[in-house]
Design a protein around this nucleic acid. Structure first.
Length: 264
DNA sequence: ATGACTGGCCCTGCCAGA
C-alpha cells in the first residue's frame, strides 16, 4: 500500500498535476493539504473519474485537507477536525480508516499544521497548541492494534540536515527550538519518521520557496512528513520524494512524499 | 545590500504562505 502526502497549494490550480500523478504513480492513498476551497468546490468528479474515493474538509480561501483512496480500497470512520479545541475552525485535519482487498487496515490522517509565523504573534502559540493536541490524539490512536500513518505538511524542519541553509531558519517558527521539541515529543509517543527511517542522506527536501530562485539553487527544506505507528513501521518497505514535480510548469511549492507499506 | 513568487479575494492592492 503506497501512501502519499502532498501540499498542492490550491487544488483548483493543481488539478492537472494531481491527475497526472494519480495516473503515473497509482498511489493507494493520497493526503492533500492547502486545498484553498470549500467542500462543494473540490473537483470531486474528476478525482472519482480517476478511480479514487474522496473525503474533504475544506474552507474558503485558506487551509483545507483531503483523503483520496484508490478502489477497491475504501474509507470508513472519517473524522473531521483535530480533537482538543472545539473553537478551532481552521480546516487542518481529516482522518479515516482505510481497508479492503486483503490489505490489513491502516488509519491515515491528512494534516496541515499551522505555519506559526510571525513568532511574536498569536499564530505561534496556536501552532504549539496544535502540536500538543496532535500529540495527545496520536497517543490515543495507539490504543488499538490498527496501524496509523499521520501524514501531512507539518511546517516543521526536524533537524539541521533537513534544510539546505539551516542558519536562515534559526529564528523561524518552522525551526525554532520549541517547535522541534514539540515535534520530537510527538515522535516520542511511539512514531517513526518514515522517510528518515529509509534514507539517512542529507539534502532530502519537500519544499522550495517560489521566490529568489530557491528551486534553481536547491535551497529547500523538508517539512512534509509521514509518521508511522509501530504497527505501520513494521510494514515499512520504502519511502521516496517525488522531486521531479517541482520542475514542471506551474508547480506547487511542495512535492509529494510517499511511503510503501507491506500489505500485511 | 536588496528583493525576489504564487494564490485567493470579489476587483484591487492586500493578506498569507514558509
Amino acid at each position: 500500500m503506497r501512501i502519499t502526502t502532498w501540499n498542492v497549494n490550491s487544488i483548483k490550480q493543481r488539478l492537472p498535476h494531481l491527475l497526472g500523478f494519480l495516473d503515473e504513480a497509482r498511489p493507494d492513498v493520497v493526503c492533500l493539504q492547502e486545498l484553498k476551497c470549500q467542500d462543494e468546490a473540490f473537483p470531486r468528479a474528476e478525482v472519482e473519474g480517476a478511480g479514487y474515493a474522496v473525503e474533504t474538509l475544506g474552507q474558503k480561501a485558506y487551509n483545507g485537507v483531503a483523503l483520496l483512496v484508490r478502489a477497491p480500497l475504501a474509507l470508513s470512520e472519517v473524522r473531521r477536525g483535530l480533537p482538543g479545541d472545539a473553537t478551532d475552525e481552521q480546516a487542518r485535519y481529516i482522518e479515516a480508516l482505510i481497508s479492503g482487498e486483503g490489505a490489513k487496515p491502516v488509519r491515515v490522517a491528512s494534516i496541515y499544521l499551522p505555519n506559526g509565523n510571525p513568532v511574536d504573534s498569536p499564530k505561534y502559540p496556536y501552532k504549539l497548541a496544535f502540536l500538543k493536541r496532535l500529540r495527545l490524539h496520536a497517543r490515543a490512536l495507539l490504543s488499538d492494534e490498527t496501524a496509523v500513518v499521520l501524514a501531512g505538511d507539518y511546517n516543521v524542519i526536524p533537524e539541521s540536515a533537513d534544510a539546505a541553509n539551516p542558519e536562515a531558519w534559526r529564528t523561524d517558527a518552522l525551526f525554532l527550538g520549541s517547535t522541534r521539541a514539540a515535534f520530537r515529543a510527538l515522535l516520542a509517543e511511539g512514531y517513526t519518521d518514515g522517510l528518515r527511517a529509509c534514507d539517512p542522506r542529507d539534502g532530502l527536501y519537500s519544499f522550495w520557496d517560489y521566490q529568489a530562485g530557491c528551486w534553481q539553487r536547491n535551497d529547500g527544506i523538508r517539512i512534509d512528513h509521514l509518521l508511522l505507528s509501530p504497527q505501520a513501521c513494521d510494514r515499512l518497505v520504502s519511502a521516496s520524494v517525488q522531486k521531479h514535480l517541482r520542475g514542471v510548469e506551474k508547480p506547487s511549492d511542495h512535492v509529494p512524499v510517499t511511503v510503501e507499506l507491506a500489505a500485511a
